[in-house]
Amino acid sequence: MADLVYRKVMHDLKQKIVNNKFPNKRLPDERSLSEEYNVSRSSIKRALKLLADDGIIFKKRGSGTFINPLYMKNQTIFHYEGSNLGITDSLKSQGKTPKIKLLDFKVIPASKEIQQDLFLSEGDFVYEIQRLRLFDDKPFMIETGYIPIKIAPELSKQIVSGSIFNYVEDKIN
């Protein structure tokens, strides 16, 4: 029964997040949520932990719990199904033959929007990567991605011409 309580809270909070019920992108504190759902704080903590593990929210010590802007931006594009695969591996698992054609790879200063989205500071630099994604030799999408240099300072054209997800998972952990 206890498992159902925190899962119900988690699903309800996720639904509220998706429906933009927290316009300031900040969730109420644990005590308020506990009172709102009429459950123990440990149930709230457990529900919030699952949401954080899924990348939907993050906690900032001393400031509160916030909705991850990257989750909100990408929720309509990709649907997380519980697997830990990048696009390349996801397409392989569907029997498609994925390919990547690198269009552009450069270092740029992070714009205000990129700083906000990637939690960067003024003056930070990012790799800007533009790639054409194909499967079964047919164009699928053009993607533009930004990776903070401080996360992966050794990225190269060769690396980003392949699966960045697998590189980060295998080499950077």
Rank of each mutant, 00 (worst) to 15 (best):
residue 96 K to E: 15
residue 123 G to D: 12
residue 43 S to V: 01
residue 99 K to N: 12
residue 83 S to F: 14
residue 171 K to M: 08
residue 39 V to C: 02
residue 37 Y to V: 06
residue 173 N to D: 08
residue 9 V to K: 02
residue 135 F to R: 07
residue 150 K to W: 11
residue 16 K to Q: 11
residue 77 I to N: 10
residue 52 A to K: 14
residue 130 Q to P: 00
residue 110 A to G: 08
residue 128 E to K: 07
residue 79 H to A: 05
residue 1 M to A: 13
residue 14 K to V: 05
residue 92 K to I: 10
residue 94 Q to S: 08
residue 84 N to F: 13
residue 6 Y to F: 14
residue 48 L to V: 02
residue 9 V to Y: 03
residue 98 P to G: 09
residue 133 R to D: 05
residue 23 P to H: 11
residue 5 V to T: 13
residue 61 R to E: 15
residue 75 Q to W: 00
residue 154 E to S: 10
residue 56 I to W: 04
residue 160 V to G: 05
residue 130 Q to G: 00
residue 136 D to T: 12
residue 148 P to A: 04
residue 4 L to E: 11
residue 151 I to H: 12
residue 124 D to H: 05
residue 144 T to F: 09
residue 22 F to N: 01
residue 2 A to P: 08
residue 15 Q to S: 07
residue 85 L to E: 13
residue 149 I to L: 13
residue 103 L to W: 00
residue 47 A to S: 09
residue 93 S to M: 05
residue 118 L to G: 07
residue 105 F to H: 04
residue 125 F to Q: 13
residue 114 I to M: 02
residue 35 E to R: 12
residue 40 S to G: 14
residue 172 I to W: 14
residue 17 I to N: 04
residue 39 V to Y: 02
residue 70 L to G: 09
residue 18 V to A: 08
residue 37 Y to S: 02
residue 108 I to D: 11
residue 168 V to S: 05
residue 154 E to K: 13
residue 46 R to K: 15
